[in-house]
Amino acid sequence: MALIHRTTVTPTKLELLAAWLPTRPWYEGGAGAPELAKAGGFRLDDPEGEVGIEFMVVADDSGPRPAAYLVPLTYRSAPLPGAGHALVGTMEHGVLGKRWAYDGCHDPVLVAQLLALVEGRVQAQAQSLSDTPDHDITRSCSRADLPSTATATDDEDGTELLLPDGTALRLHRLPLPGTEAPEGAVGHVAGVREAPDGTRVPVVFATLRPGP
């Protein structure tokens, strides 16, 4: 299980994301800098214990209407070869030292664990507590033996992880309202995000759809 350290991170994760989010095709903010606040999320464990895996939800009030974004991140102690395009930034961790933060959709460790979550082979973990399952995260999957690799592509609707067998896992960068898989899906991941007034809103984070 991942150990959550109570320490400082410089720059903060929200500061890194404020610079990175406007570069994404699915970002809906205005011309100014994002105005970000943490709005939920969860973690997954790396079986090797080397890579931090976090699914952050951040609220942004800078655009024409409030938005909440799903941002899967990985944290590494050294650069990930061939993933320079997916680097969100670097930060100094008070316990672990320098960390490289990546858009986790392009990190094979996160992708493999996310697919394992969809299948029900791993348990989501609380975002800010060590060794604590997050039972708000639910999932479904009518498929068995999903491949453990995928190619990520961003578009205006989010990020698609295309599996070698043609199956596609769509990450809803702006999570969908509700708890159930949309019509035609063969799997999904759902959870909650925090609204500005503190209420917990059920949302769908990812949808699995069959290939051709």
Rank of each mutant, 00 (worst) to 15 (best):
V192K: 11
R170F: 07
P34S: 03
E119W: 09
G104L: 03
S77M: 11
F42M: 03
M56V: 13
S148V: 15
G198L: 07
G49I: 06
A68T: 13
D61E: 15
T23D: 11
P11H: 07
R65I: 13
R76K: 05
E119A: 14
D145M: 09
A168L: 11
G187N: 05
D60E: 09
A190G: 11
G82R: 07
D197T: 08
T74G: 08
E156M: 12
V111Y: 06
L129A: 14
L146E: 02
G187H: 03
A18E: 11
P133T: 08
D107K: 04
A116R: 14
G29N: 10
S62K: 11
L117S: 03
L36P: 06
R24S: 08
T199Y: 09
F42G: 00
I4S: 02
S128C: 07
L117F: 06
G63R: 03
K13P: 03
W20M: 04
F205S: 00
Y75R: 05
G63L: 05
P66F: 11
L87A: 08
A195R: 12
E160N: 13
G158Q: 00
R121P: 08
P177T: 09
T90M: 14
D131T: 03
G211V: 08
S130G: 06
T151I: 13
R121V: 10
P182G: 05
W20Q: 05
T7W: 09
R139F: 12
G41M: 01
W26C: 06
V88W: 05
Q127R: 14
P72T: 00
A152G: 11
H135N: 12
A101N: 14
G40P: 04
Q123N: 10
W20A: 10
K38F: 14
P147S: 04
A86H: 06
G63V: 05
P25R: 08
A124K: 02
T159G: 00
G191T: 01
E180W: 04
E48Y: 11
L110G: 08
A181F: 02
L176F: 02
V9A: 12
D157V: 12
G166T: 09
G32Q: 07
G30E: 06
G32A: 07
D61M: 14
V58N: 01
P72I: 00
G198F: 07
L208T: 06
D131I: 03
R76C: 02
L70S: 01
P164N: 10
A33R: 15
P47D: 05
E15R: 14
D154S: 12
T151E: 15
